[in-house]
Amino acid sequence: MNATLTHLERLEAEAIHIMREVVAEAERPVMLYSVGKDSAVMLHLARKAFYPSPPPFPLLHVDTTWKFRAMYELRDRMANESGMELLIYHNPEAQERGINPFDHGALHTDMWKTEGLKQALDKWQFDAAFGGARRDEEKSRAKERIFSFRTASHGWDPKNQRPELWNLYNARKHKGESIRVFPISNWTELDVWQYIHLNNVPIVPLYFADKRPTVERDGMLLMVDDDRFPLKPGEVPVERSIRFRTLGCYPLTGAVESTAATLPQIIQETLLTTTSERQGRAIDKDAGGAGMEVKKQQGYF
């Protein structure tokens, strides 16, 4: 064995260490599971961290009912394979009011995801929630701690974060307060892809290019995943060879035209690309340059 660990070995060891600390110190941890590639890596790391035991916490999917069908399939399969309990939460108010990404824009994310997440955490009284956010994704995330402390109302105070030294994490909190934990904070998009490649981590097939029905709107390629997609007058879905660099709600997530059908081809495309990963996501564009920082203060992951 080589005396110096590779960067992926170090990143993996760090993530596993973080997950074990949470399990040792929190009362009711949960893993947020959004079925994307980062969630896939998180789940894989959790299985490694506690092997041969199954990870000693449930998976929580805060669902919007607007995910791609392929995502729901993989979600159910992975929960089954890992032996973990899968909790699914739908914000009842969003459901009742029929909140959807076509008619409600930003409200859709706010109600289903931000509010839904808070409600789910309150409902099951989780005091620590793992998330797959990475510091390379967005500017305010670059400054967030690995153990990110939240008030009883789920707020984040960027100016009052706990100092985090060495690999010592302070998980102490008062009743009602909680901690969001980001074990893959130090990973980049390339690290995630390479880890998936090396470990054969199962991911949603939508990451691989294939012929899919699409329409083009505001410069974004949207996939028509089911018949809930309201076509505009004259709009006809066109078959294009596309794939997704990031997966959210299907009408909010832009696809890229691609022929990359294997992981090395995807990685190749990622390396040769010239736009950042979150560019396809509408959420970052809300509220100007500080969009994500504001959302996080309100309780978004």
Binding site: R135, K143, S185
Partner: peptide, 20 residues
């Protein structure tokens, strides 16, 4: 990265960046 930092042109908190 933080709004206060961009406004004041100073670095308040540790930011982590990545390159290869």
């Amino acid at each position: 990265g933080l709004a206060a930092e961009r406004e004041q042109g100073i670095t308040i908190d540790v930011a982590y960046r990545f390159f290869n």
